[in-house]
Design a binder for these strands. Structure first.
Lengths: 227, 227
DNA sequence: CGAATGCTTCGATTATGATCGAAGTATGAA
DNA sequence: TTCATACTTCGATCATAATCGAAGCATTCG
C-alpha cells in the first residue's frame, strides 16, 4: 500500500545520527552557523555542509546568509512539534543518550523546547495557571480564561497580538522528561521571552538548558505558586 | 550537543521505504499479518520478518500470535499521532507518492487515520460540529460543549465512558490532505465506529480509504449539515 | 501422519550513503 | 591587496544494512 505522503524520506533525514544531533541543537530555538552545527554533531564542516543541504532540501531547515556566515534554523513550528513528538516517543521508550551527564538534570529542570519553556519548570507553570483557573483544561485541550487574559495583560504580554496571530495561544506539548504537558503556543513563547528579557533566566551555552537566577527562581515561584 | 532523547533511531526505523509502507498500512487501524504486510511493502516475507522485528524492538509495533498467524498493529495512539505528524509535514512539503492513482481521490475524500475519520469528510464533520456549537474551538484546542454532550448521547455514544477514559475526547489532528484539522480523540474514534456499525461506511480492502454507501452519504449529510 | 502454509533464521551479495582530505569560492579584517 | 575564515564541492573509501534464496520450525488441515 503505497498511498499518501512519503514518510520514509523525512524519517531517513532524521535517522542519521549527525543530522539528528543538529536538529536537536536547533530545538534550542537559536539559529546556528554551519560551523557550530558541525561541532555539535562531532563531524567535519564539509560533512555538515552536505547534511545541511539535505535538511534544507527536505524543508526541515531554512538558512539565512549573513556575510560569510550561514545561519540555519528549523523552518517552522511544525518541524519543532514533529521533532518533539518523536522525542516524546523515544523518551517513552527509554531511548536516551547513554551518558546522563551533569546537564541531564538541568535539561529536566528547565529547557527550551523550540521556542517555549519545557521540563519541570514548564510543567509547573502550566499546572499553576490551570490551578489558578487562568487556563482551562478539557482533556488535552487548553483555553485561556477571562482571568487568564487579564493575567497575561498584567504581565505585560500583548494579548491582542497573540489573538491576532494564526498560531494557537495555548497548546499542549507533551514534555519528554516529565511525561505530562507543558505550555506551548504563542503564550508559551511569550512567557519564555519574558523570563529572558527580565533577566530571570538565561540560556546556557551549547545547550537547550535554561538556567534561572536566584531572583528569577523567586520571581517564578511568586508568579506560579503551587497550590 | 548530544542531549536528550535519541531521535535518530526512530527516524531510521521510519526511514526505510519498506518499513514506511508497512507503518502506513497499519495506519488503517487494522492488525495485519506478516504476509499481508510483506505484500503491502512489496518485499519477500523473510525481509518483512526482519523489518517487523526491528519495528517491534523499537516499540512502534506490537504483535499477537494467533496459531500460525502473527498479527501486527501500531503499539499505541502516540505512534499514530507521531506518524500523522510526519505525514502532515511530508504532505506540506509536497512529498507524496509519484503515482496519484484512482485511490488518491478516495483517500482525500474519506480515510482512516489510525482510528478516526480523516479527509474531506473528517474535516466536514468537525466543521459542522463546530458550526452547530457542539464543539468549541479556541486556537487549536477543541472542547465539547453541553450541547455537544447531548448530541453525543443522542447518537448512542456512551459519553460517560469517553469521559472516564484518560484519552482526550476531542483532539485536533492535522489532516494531511485538507491541511486543516479533523477530529481525533475518543470521540473521533467512536464516530467512525458508529458509521461502520450502522453500515453507512465500509473499509476498503488493502487501503485506508473509507467508502460511504449512498444511504450513508445521505445520513452523514443529515447528521453533519454544512451551514 | 503427511502436506500445506505462515513465519523465522542464516548467510552471501550489493547498493547506498556517510565520511573526510583536497581544492575552490566568498566574505571580512588588517 | 593579502591573509584568514566560513563554507561548498569533488572524489575516493568503506561501513552498513536491505535483500533474497535456502533451510528450518511451528501450526493447521485433510
Amino acid at each position: 500500500m503505497k498511498e499518501g505522503p512519503d514518510i520514509a524520506l523525512i524519517g531517513s533525514l532524521i535517522g542519521d545520527p549527525a543530522r539528528a544531533n543538529m536538529l536537536t541543537a536547533l530545538m534550542g530555538g537559536r539559529a546556528l552557523t554551519a560551523t557550530e552545527l558541525a561541532t555539535h554533531a562531532g563531524i567535519t564542516l564539509q560533512t555538515a555542509s552536505s547534511h545541511l543541504a539535505k535538511l534544507e532540501a527536505g524543508g526541515l531547515l531554512t538558512q539565512r546568509k549573513q556575510g560569510r556566515h550561514r545561519y540555519y534554523a528549523l523552518s517552522e513550528d511544525e518541524v519543532g512539534l514533529m521533532l518533539e513528538s518523536i522525542m516524546g516517543f523515544a523518551a517513552s521508550r527509554g531511548l536516551t543518550r547513554n551518558r546522563p551527564g551533569p546537564k541531564d538534570p538541568a535539561l529536566r529542570k528547565a529547557r527550551v523546547c523550540y521556542n517555549h519553556l519545557a521540563g519541570d519548570y514548564g510543567v509547573r507553570m502550566l499546572d499553576s495557571l490551570v490551578a489558578a483557573r487562568q487556563i482551562e483544561v478539557t482533556g488535552n485541550e487548553l483555553a485561556l480564561t477571562d482571568a487568564g487574559r487579564d493575567r497575561v495583560e498584567a504581565l505585560g504580554i500583548d494579548y491582542a497580538a497573540l489573538k491576532k496571530s494564526r498560531r494557537p495561544i495555548c497548546r499542549t506539548c507533551l514534555d519528554w522528561s516529565e511525561r505530562r504537558s507543558h505550555l506551548a503556543g504563542s503564550l508559551g513563547e511569550a512567557l519564555l521571552t519574558l523570563f529572558i528579557d527580565k533577566g530571570w533566566a538565561k540560556r546556557e551555552q551549547n545547550s537547550r538548558a535554561i538556567r534561572f537566577t536566584d531572583s528569577g527562581e523567586k520571581a517564578f515561584s511568586e508568579l506560579f505558586p503551587q497550590y
